[in-house]
Design a protein around this nucleic acid. Structure first.
Lengths: 218, 218
DNA sequence: ATAAGTATGTGGTTATAACCACGGAAATGA
DNA sequence: TCATTTCCGTGGTTATAACCACATACTTAT
């Protein structure tokens, strides 16, 4: 309960607000065991899932049975919110219990239904806008960084964004090499090679996850 | 005005609602001439831009000056909403007048501020959630389709999603070849070649923008 | 301290996608 | 209708990234 009020979705809500909403909006919690399918591709969802404990894996399976993992939502995070917010939009992915977990379901239609009494749910909707907007920016950034054809250009794109975001030519990235490769849609060893070349070419310096990007502006 | 009530952002609002909000939320319209920079990268925005006429181009410029166009927002659409919804998030992109245009600015902080009188703005916020959620799904889909390494696999990914969405093995896609290549992050001629091979291999049939995807299930 | 496991860099090979160029088809517009 | 332009497929070449294998450095645990 104390945990809930600290999640991005309920940020700014008092415990009283939450209890109030729990009644009005008919919150529901469910337990799942590792491997259980929480939401199935093709189904229509109307509920946001808030992960109370454990984690949820978002999996994509194409027509030919090829699977790939699109993301993990940990405790405190929400999943399926984009599908839940759009009426009649079938899920493209499965939500699978990555480990034993506890999920709080919140009905978007109820959330959107006007409630003259409590202004609390408006706060919730606002948080929801911010959460989806933030996910949007993350997706946009990745799109930008993976659009160049060459490894070097993708790294340039990513680095320049990080330089701007961190306000310095000296940046620390939140990825190890494999994760960076996944993020930029590259092979790890090819990535390592290109980083080495860029260092030789005097474009960057790096040590582990710390990089110095040398712009020609002195 | 009649136009405004038909935009996705104001869907479901009566003219009275809109006039009401125009007062409370202090709507502002601005004219821009083709080429004008409406919003500059690095700046903090708090307003959503609703395109009343003309169109707005979203441009990304990296540290080395390389530009790329990320998208166009036409009349009725909104832009910068993700940045406006997240406090202190600097724009990564420029918003440029693609042609002479008229922009309605709506302050998100005002939109989020509680107004005891009018419930109309809640409707607006709900629409905003749906708009961002929809953009989210679009971005996710593209991410899914561009993650495979080979052209054929990207096409499989895209086709299988379309088959599912259109509910038939016979699909019509909204792209010409160049656009499909851009969408899947491919070279056009390479794309054409691979489509030809897939036809030879008996996997698909196509004619212009109509495709038949042959699953092995008869 | 040592061992096991993980992360990273590097060389070499190969598949493959980008690139360039062009010819024909189809759409557009006068 | 004809002219013009855009769109699409194809061949050939080349650059490049994936892939494989391995050696070294770094972590972590016991």
């Amino acid at each position: 309960m104390d945990f809930i009020s600290k999640t991005p979705l309920f940020r700014g809500c008092t415990e009283e607000d939450i209890l109030n909403m729990a009644k009005h909006l008919d919150f529901r919690t469910d337990r799942y065991k590792k491997g259980d399918i929480i939401l199935r591709a093709g189904s229509i969802v109307t509920d946001i899932g808030l992960v109370l404990s454990g984690s949820v894996r978002i999996e994509y399976t194409d027509l030919w049975g090829n699977k790939s993992i699109l993301g993990i939502t940990h405790a405190g995070g929400v999943f399926a919110e984009s599908y839940a917010c759009i009426p009649d939009e079938p899920m493209m992915v499965d939500a699978v219990a990555n480990e034993d977990c506890n999920i709080l379901s919140i009905s978007v239609p109820r959330l959107f239904a006007p409630c003259p009494v409590c202004g609390s749910q408006n706060r919730l909707i606002q948080n929801l806008v911010m959460i989806t907007a933030e996910k949007n920016l993350q997706l946009s950034r990745r799109s930008m960084h993976t659009s160049p054809k060459t490894i070097r250009e993708r790294l340039f794109s990513y680095f320049s964004q990080q330089v701007s975001a961190q306000g310095s030519n000296k940046i620390v990235i939140p990825f190890d090499r494999q994760q960076l490769a996944d993020y930029l849609n590259l092979d790890r060893s090819a990535l390592s090679k290109e980083l080495g070349k860029m260092r030789n070419d005097g474009l960057i310096e790096f040590n582990k996850n710390s990089f110095v990007i040398k712009t020609d502006i002195e």
